[in-house]
Amino acid sequence: MAEEKPNEFLKAKKIETGTVIDHVAKGKAMRVLGVLGIKEDFPGTVTVLMNVPSSHYGRKDIIKIEGRTLEKKELAHIALIAPNATVNTIKKYAVIDKYVVQTPSLIEGVMPCPNPNCITSAEGISRLSVVQAHPLRLKCSFCEKVYGEADLLR
């Protein structure tokens, strides 16, 4: 059996197909997985690296998701939590696509308005506009309430 370098073993294995989300703000990795709807029932391997030293941001998080590529819409969701993230699509161990996420101005039909007394939950729709990207502030286009990141990801 070939000997694995202790360094690689401790960090994380490369993924064959899937997504690597880099430059996630320190401490936000779990929330990013949350908006992507990735939970314990996800079939692939998910690797989360936290507090990785970074030349740009001091410390950052990195997420590797085996067997799942992201849709354009999902990139916008990531931007809400981690506005500096870069999303790499991996095929056969190589990066075939690289995006820098962009904060959208409007998010429709993605996350419900956190106000339990908002009409949108009864009608099964949602539309939130981004009032401020950092720190995140969203306003429901219907009930007009304004939310921070913590309200959205409960």
Binding site: C118, I119, C143
Partner: peptide, 10 residues
């Protein structure tokens, strides 16, 4: 007039 917020906008 509606008890839920956002109903008129909807």
């Amino acid at each position: 007039r509606h008890p839920l917020e956002g109903s008129a906008a909807l």
